[in-house]
Design a protein around this nucleic acid. Structure first.
Lengths: 66, 66
DNA sequence: CTTTTTTGTCATATATAGTTGACATCATTT
DNA sequence: AAATGATGTCAACTATATATGACAAAAAAG
């Protein structure tokens, strides 16, 4: 799906804390981590910056098998 | 802003043709190319795939100076 | 065990992405 | 010079991303 949860946990952030830093609601982070919707590009970029990574790493052809 | 127009032209596609292939309206492509809004992640991924590239190349920290 | 934090989820509301149809302008083609 | 194709833009509409408030359950901390 995507690697947001993995990167968030590596940084020791809760969904709430990450949401606050980025300026969205906690539910928005939760839904994205669970692949329940389709975030905007701006939000994806904010996430990548806050998590110290980039768009491809977080969202490009994530291998979910195994 | 982003490199959609550049990649589209390199492939010899019109906004209309690209829109058709991806399944969105022509206006949507036009607005994205002109940075007038914030596309969804799914659309960004469709664009990257159709243009034979990836998210970072199209949308990540595009250098617009010069 | 009790308390607090974190996560998942629901329902309602609002902002905005994306659609549709239309028209003007510019560039190509005939 | 007329016809065609590409692009920019507008207005009105629909779909959906995101917000807000709330509650339950799991996990972590005391």
């Amino acid at each position: 799906m995507n690697r947001v949860r993995e990167f968030r946990k590596n940084r020791g952030l809760s969904q709430f804390t990450l949401a606050e830093k980025i300026g969205v609601a906690r539910q928005t982070i939760n839904l994205i981590e669970n692949g329940k919707y389709n975030p905007s590009l701006k939000l994806c970029i904010s996430l990548a910056e806050e998590l110290g990574t980039d768009l491809n790493t977080l969202f490009w052809k994530v291998d979910d098998t195994q």
